[in-house]
Write a protein that binds this DNA or RNA. Structure first.
Lengths: 188, 188
DNA sequence: TTTTAATGTCAACAAGGCTGACGTAAAATT
DNA sequence: AATTTTACGTCAGCCTTGTTGACATTAAAA
C-alpha cells in the first residue's frame, strides 16, 4: 500500500460509476450529511468558477476575431433566443443600463448583425432581430460552447446531466428562476 | 386535460426523484442520446450563465461595502487557499498580467488584508498571506456563497451533488484540470 | 392637452483588463 | 567575478464595459 493523500471524493473519472451502479439511493452516503460540509460547498463554488471560466473562453476566441466582447455575445444571444424583443425587454434580461446596452447594440446594428425595426403596435418600440450574418455568428458561438458540453455530457451520462441541470437551476435566484427557466425551455 | 406546452424535461422539483429512484442506470433514457441534442446542450450553457451570475452576486454585495470588486475577491480567495504563495504563483492561477494584479494587490496590502513578506529561501519573492482582517472578510465571502450551495445541495441530495461536481470538473480545460482539482481538493 | 413611456445620445467617470518600457534586487549561470 | 535571468514593482496609456446624470424625440395613455 503506497501512502495516499486523503481526498474528499471529488475526483472520479466517470460519474456514471457512482450514479449508475444500480444501488438504490441512500445505500451509499446513507442519511449522513458529509456532502454538506463547508469544504464540500466551497468545492462546488470553486468548480463553478473554473468551469465557467473555460466555457466562456471558447466563445471569447471567436469574438475577438471581430473585435467583440462578451457584452456583444450576450446581446446577440438573447436577441437570438427572443426574436423581435424590444429594447426594454433586452435591458431587463441583461440587467445593464440602457446607455451601456446602447453602445454595443448600436455597433451590432451598424455592423449588420442585428436588425432594429419600429414596433407595429407600439411605434415607440424598436424590435430586435438577428440578420443572417448575426445568426451565423451566434450559431458559431453556440456551437463552440456546445462542443465542450457534448463531450462532458456524453461521458457523464443522462442521469448525471439531469442532476447537473437541476442543481444549476436551484442556484438561480428564486425571484428570477421562473423567467430564466422559461427562456431556457423555449425551443430553438 | 388542460393543454400543456411541450417541455424538455428541465424543470424537476427534486433531482432526487430521478436519481434516487432505485432503478439501475440505463433503465430510463436507455441507450438513446436525446440528452445530447443541441437544445439540451444550449440549456446547459445557459444554466451555467444564470447560476454563476446569481452566485457571484452574493459575494458582490459584501464586496461593494468596502469598495472592492471581483478582482479583489479572487485575489483574497486564492491567497486564502494557498497561504504563502508567491506573486508569480498567484499570477498563474489568476491568469492576469502582473500590472493588473499589482493594482488590486497593492490596495489589499495597504488596507491590511494581505501581508507580503520576503521569501526566506529566495529573497526576491514576496510570499502572500492573509491577515486576520483578510481572513475575516474571505470567510464572510465564502459563507455567503456556501449558503446558496448548501440549500441546493441539501435539496438535490448526495448523488446529484456528486454528478454536478463531476460534470463541472469535466468542463475544465484538460490542460489545467489537474492543477485546478488539486487546488480544490486541499483541506481548508 | 398633458403626462408618461420607449428610445437614443452626449459627457464624464470607474473598474479592471491589456501592452510596453523601465528599474532594482537577488539568484543562477558562465 | 562578471553576466544573465528571474521576481517583483511601477509608470504611462489604451480598451471594454459598466455606471450616473442630463437632455431630446416620438408616440402612447390619461
Amino acid at each position: 500500500m503506497s501512502p495516499q493523500r486523503a481526498t474528499t471524493g471529488l475526483v472520479q473519472t466517470h460519474a456514471a460509476r457512482s450514479l449508475a451502479d444500480g444501488r438504490p439511493a441512500g445505500a451509499r452516503g446513507g442519511g449522513n450529511l458529509l456532502f454538506l460540509t463547508d469544504q464540500q460547498l466551497r468545492q462546488g463554488v470553486e468548480l463553478m468558477f473554473f468551469a465557467y471560466r473555460d466555457m466562456v473562453a471558447d466563445a471569447d476566441r471567436l469574438l475577438e476575431d471581430r473585435g467583440y466582447g462578451r457584452a456583444h455575445h450576450r446581446c446577440l444571444h438573447f436577441v437570438w433566443r427572443r426574436p423581435g424583443i424590444p429594447v426594454t425587454g433586452l435591458l431587463e434580461i441583461l440587467g445593464v443600463t440602457k446607455q451601456s446596452l446602447n453602445r454595443v447594440l448600436r455597433q451590432l446594428v451598424e455592423d449588420g448583425l442585428i436588425r432594429s425595426e419600429v414596433g407595429p403596435r407600439d411605434r415607440r418600440q424598436r424590435l430586435l432581430d438577428l440578420t443572417e450574418e448575426g445568426e451565423t455568428l451566434v450559431r458559431a458561438l453556440s456551437a463552440a460552447q456546445n462542443e465542450r458540453m457534448r463531450r462532458v455530457f456524453l461521458e457523464a451520462g443522462p442521469e448525471a446531466v439531469q442532476a447537473f441541470k437541476t442543481v444549476l437551476a436551484g442556484m438561480i435566484d428564486e425571484g428570477s428562476r421562473d423567467r430564466a427557466l422559461a427562456l431556457i425551455e423555449d425551443q430553438g
